[in-house]
């Protein structure tokens, strides 16, 4: 799992994840994702290149989303593939971690929250 952090325009932070979000992947993203979540900013987690996710990875996304929400900001997941999307929905996250399908949609959702 690789993680890259950059600005998402002027409305948030982009976190690009690449690879497997399994036990090893979750260990790798835990500290940087927690740091981003604690920065009191919107977060766009780019999931396009995540090819597998297990509950331990989901745990870190939920923890980050809760931290972001406490600062009245929002975390969205950008375009996970259909299999990863199904896992997220099956895990009961459909209403907790919004999935957006494009950067434009992310901007719209985050701007509405601002």
């Amino acid at each position: 799992m690789d993680i890259t952090i950059s600005k998402f325009g002027d409305i948030g932070t982009r976190v690009v994840l690449v690879g497997k979000l399994d036990i090893a992947g979750a260990e790798k993203i835990a500290t940087p994702l927690a740091a981003v979540a604690g920065a009191r900013n919107n977060v766009v987690v780019d999931m396009v290149a995540v090819d597998f996710i297990a509950s331990i990875g989901i745990r870190h996304l939920v923890m980050a989303a809760k931290t972001v929400a406490r600062a009245s900001r929002m975390l969205v997941l950008l375009d996970p593939n259909p299999i990863v999307s199904e896992i997220l929905v099956t895990a009961g996250l459909a209403d907790l971690l919004p999935i957006v399908r494009s950067e434009d949609e992310a901007r719209t959702v985050l701007s509405a929250k601002a």
Binding site: R59, V62, M63
Partner: peptide, 12 residues
């Protein structure tokens, strides 16, 4: 989200 427990989704 506020009431969500980050854990406990593996069994589900």
């Amino acid at each position: 989200l506020e009431s969500a427990d980050p854990r406990g989704r593996g069994l589900r």
